[in-house]
Design a protein around this nucleic acid. Sequence first.
DNA 1: GTAGGGTTAG
Length: 733
Amino acid sequence: MASTLSTALLEVQLSSPNQSAEAKRPTFFTSPLRTHPTKRLLISCNSARSPPKPKPRPKSKASPKPHLENQNPSLSDQLKPLSSTILTRNPRPDQLNSLLPKPKSTWVNPTKPKPSVLSLQRHKRSSYSYNPQIRDLKNFAKKLNESDPDDENAILAVLEENPHPVTRDNALLILNSLKPWQKAYLFFNWVKTQKLFPMETIFYNVTMKSLRFGKKFDVIESLANEMISEDVKLDNITYSTIITCAKRCGLFGKAVEWFERMYKTGLMPDEVTYSAILDVYAKLGKVEEVLSLYERGRASGWTPDPVAFSVLGKMFGEAGDYDGIRYVLQEMKSIGVKPNLVVYNTLLEAMGKAGKPGLARSLFDEMVESGLTPDAKTLTALIKVYGKARWSKDAMELWERMRSNNWQMDFILYNTLLSMCADLGLEEEAERLFEHMKQLENSKLDSWSYTAMLNIYGSGGKVDKAMELFEEMLRLGVEFNVMGSTCLIQCLGRARRIDDLVRVFDVSIEKGIRPDDRFCGCLLSVVSYCADSEDAIEVLGCLEQSNPRLVSFIRLLEEEETSFETIKEEFKAILNEASVEVRRPFCNCLIDICRNRNSNERAHELLYLGTLYGLYPGLHNKTSAEWSLDVRSLSVGAAYTAFEEWMGTLSKGIQREEALPELFSAYTGAGTHKFAQGLANSLAAHVETLAAPFKQSEEKPGCFVATREDLVFWLQAIQSPAVSGAQKSGVHF
DNA sequence: GTAGGGTTAG
């Protein structure tokens, strides 16, 4: 089995997610905005710089191909591993909503002047005339708001009490004051049945806004259809309300459908509707469509406002596209639009998502210099960026600045500060803040605050403090969520407090927590280091309730007669069911479990499969001077397995007299990650057990180096029958 | 929230 790893390395290139066969195909829309495909990414000539290009997909490194004895395989043979090694990806929102119109190939002559795609005039609002009865009417609306929503007769009785005649203006004023959508909708229908005056567009619009608040898209749509059948004109306000409601309900196909419909009726969107639809495409991750719309709008003479730029900024942030973010800033500069606070907030967060903490910091400085005062959202975004980047110094400085400048803080910001403390391991600071938050007026510590503290104690191994907090949550009735439970269980597992772990698990299930993949991964990792089989059985019991398939798989691994094919198929199915971020941890834990149960053979099979399914990209790196093994993303057991596998492959290479480089290195990393040091120590111990000639480099901690001469000598020595004892100590070649 | 668009914690 192990001997096939070198060929597996060939296959892994096929299974890397970036080269998946499901390459995105651009979707066109059928509105008059359609442009010729080759023109789609051209940005208006006013822009100073070229638009962001889609990033080239990362290419696989051209590593020297292992020598293969057989002839070139046929095309169908070459394609086979592709279908058998590709895992499905998590569904994206645009894949869930396949309602977007399919492309039609309508030729648009690019030499003709582009038609205008949006109206530069915003919808004019009618001005209110002063209503002397306003007080009475507001009181009346208040009564309606307070009446029992389920008691129709009571509501009708209130309606009869209206002190003033229901004129158009009075009805509008009342409708605007009704809060829950049920009341507004009821009043709207009541007015309609009175037939005192024609129902104009504005009545529908106000009612729709209320319905949007209640996310009642189906009702909004029925009202819109009623407008069409009753011949009431739909205006830009109607359409933007419909579109944004569909968007907030996640019905992106519907949003696009109504946008298309607007064009079909000959109504031109104004910039508000236009921004709304830009946001729809942005939320779908359809960057090219958004840029195309943007470009067409610019070509029609549109000067986008900060809202439009905020939409673009958010979209690029979600895509982690730094070039895109920079493009937004450049566009604003060249058009002469000054970013407002919301734009800065969006871009700061986007910078964080694109992994640019330094640029976020300078953008923040620029914002403050421009005279804007950061609000709680600005500070939340920046604290989050610094926390994730582990920039302790900047985070603490900002925290200090917040206090000395008396900048606005809210509870979300406090909770974010707590989470940042968890990221940076600042236990004392977090405790102080937590106490401070307890004493704040009008503020209650919520599940987020407690979860952040559980995270801090959990990752710091403070198991007693974590349990105290858990009891406190139960006592105070603070919601205990899946993340808090995961942190606590992880902590209890590391401390081998299995009875407490099982109790926390039971409480979690009682409280209605639904185990997610991370939660199961956490239980699986506890199983992996349970030396005591009774403990393992307890934890497997919890896992059985959360993910029975995983437990059956562990049993399959234990049974000697299970074939490799069975393991392969079942493992693939499990990985496909799991979300992408837990796939590698699952594989790592399962390898550890196998090694702990002395089934190294199975561990090698799993590593092979993990590699095959693309869970360990970049594990092997080769230059002419050095071959290296990067085990930073591997667990201890997986790292041992990978190391042995590597030595086995090299050993065979030596037998075949293949060319070898001067230097060999294994890299465990020794950086900021909590467990990195542990991995370096473990590999050091393992290397010593094997008496392998790898030495930890002094200038590069976490890097184990061996020369070709030493390595070849060692490998040849342990292969000779005289020293076969080395094999008993765990070397599996 | 006073007829429509954007930011808002793991």
